[in-house]
Design a protein around this nucleic acid. Structure first.
Lengths: 290, 290
DNA sequence: CATGATATCTGACTTATGTCAGATAATTCG
DNA sequence: CGAATTATCTGACATAAGTCAGATATCATG
């Protein structure tokens, strides 16, 4: 009935006509959209004026005027940066924080009602995640993090949950050789997550031994982020980290049920090798020389 | 990691920052957004000025000025309506049509690139359909149509495809008693589709006999539209049509694999009855007295 | 400390958008 | 026909948003 292009454009129409409503949810509190956006950006922790200007894509003159109008309303104060007095730092006053909270409440209520009215909220949320990830694909950053930190733990839990869904016999972390976190941190290894606007969308671990070999572990991409080339970007990050650590031989194990992963390895220079551990879950083993 | 409200708001941020790009795709041709929107709305077949004003939510003064600026550019002509000379009809000139086509090409290219860059376009499109349907739920209209028409045939094909996916033994229309289209049209019956911005999202048939009984057939809601209460709205439309046709007894058959449908029937006053046909697919039979 | 670079602000201006009260012309209805 | 209603247009304004060329203060560097 509708070809792909028509479906995307239908989506665009749907969001633009609703997004009027999203954007103007910033309205209705007697303040132009520009000023409301600045107030909200400050409330969300952006304080550096240059950062604000960049994030909101505003001209410096306009930015300056918007800030001053918020100052005149008594919602914001600015003071010079302690290191560099040319730069200015904006902060919400108590009244400003109240205004910000009011906007937050509005936005949350709107989001809440969208979910509450829907009969299959989980499916809808998954769809929204996927669209958000696709739209924001150029803003997904690969960051090296502590594998014991919040974003890493979130990814690992999702990864385990997915394995237990996809393996016909289920998956139990306890039965698998759980890599010691210290092996996936400098100076022996590394751990990376892919972050999109605060949400972790994927991860990979480089588990070193302190010698010149290492293993790739825990490669995972969120279902919402499949098709964005995240797996490849994560693997690249891990390989580059390995090179920096003077590692020359990488190995990994995987399961033939994970077809996408296998395909990725074969396309990026990995070669299949014999089983090199007695972990019960993997049935496929790969190696790559750096 | 993120609660539902945070996920919706993340979606909102993703689309608003991209939708800037969507909306301003209307820019870059030296024309303010307002004028470009009017030109495009006319190009898409809205010609009545009042209709345009309503659709674009513009003040009548502003609308008038935008139209005049397009006329001065030689892109649009207006003439009085033939029935009512107070109303005005806007039409694109040849130059206007060329400009409109240029915008279309831009929009199509943008949509195309979004899909082309994605590794799982079908999943992404399904997600976009779902979000578009949820955002536009208040604009979904139930319309009575000819069951042999384009939108009805599209729904029926999707319906058959879904049955063959969901029935363990598959589904072959030829084996089922295919209702004669004439039985699903006035004066014996009716056929309804749910339309959202041009896309059919669901259907239902009321198959009459010319007497005071009838059957409900082909109740279907697109996967993207599940959870929006479409099934209920379609059934209501069919029941109301039945009442108008003085039908007092409705029956239907279904399969226990279609759990949502069964649940809907039980919640809306249908009672299970004995098998009343020898169709191979259904295994559950319901009746409702009007 | 002089010089150029940087971050922000100010003034002057343009364009886009939105609002509102009539004006104008056509239509409807008693 | 005449009064009320309706659709659109016009004029007069107001505000929002965006642009750009300096002005000002501060910083980095030789």
């Amino acid at each position: 009935m509708l070809d792909p292009v028509a479906r995307v454009r239908r989506f665009n129409r749907a969001v633009t006509s609703e997004v009027g409503a999203l954007d103007t949810s910033f309205l209705g509190r007697g303040r132009p959209l520009g000023a409301a956006r600045v107030l909200n950006a400050i409330g969300h922790g952006r304080s550096d004026v240059a950062d604000l200007r960049d994030y909101l894509a505003l001209d410096s003159g306009l930015m300056s005027r918007l800030l001053r109008s918020l100052e005149e309303e008594g919602l914001v104060t600015t003071k010079p940066h302690s290191d560099d007095a040319r730069r200015r730092i904006a902060k919400l006053t108590a009244a400003g924080r109240r205004e910000f909270e009011a906007y937050e409440t509005l936005s949350n209520a709107q989001a809440q009602s969208m979910i509450a009215r829907h009969g299959q909220p989980d499916t809808l949320l998954a769809a929204m995640d996927m669209v958000a990830a696709a739209l924001g694909r150029d803003r997904i950053a690969i960051e090296e993090v502590d594998p014991r930190g919040e974003s890493a733990r979130y990814c690992l839990n999702e990864y385990y949950a997915e394995l237990s869904r996809r393996f016909s016999r289920g998956y139990d972390v306890a039965l698998s050789r759980d890599p010691d976190a210290l092996d996936m941190m400098a100076p022996r290894g590394a751990f990376f997550v892919a972050l999109s606007d605060g949400l972790p969308l994927g991860c990979v671990g480089l588990k070193g031994t302190g010698r010149d070999d290492a293993e790739i572990k825990r490669l995972w991409a969120a279902p919402a982020a499949r098709g964005l080339g995240l797996g490849r970007r994560l693997m690249d990050a891990a390989e580059n980290a390995a090179r920096r650590l003077s590692i020359t031989r990488l190995r990994l194990d995987t399961n033939s049920a994970l077809a996408e992963a296998q395909q990725l390895y074969r396309k990026t220079g990995w070669t299949e090798i014999e089983r090199f551990n007695d972990d019960p879950y993997p049935d496929l083993f790969f190696e790559k020389r750096l």
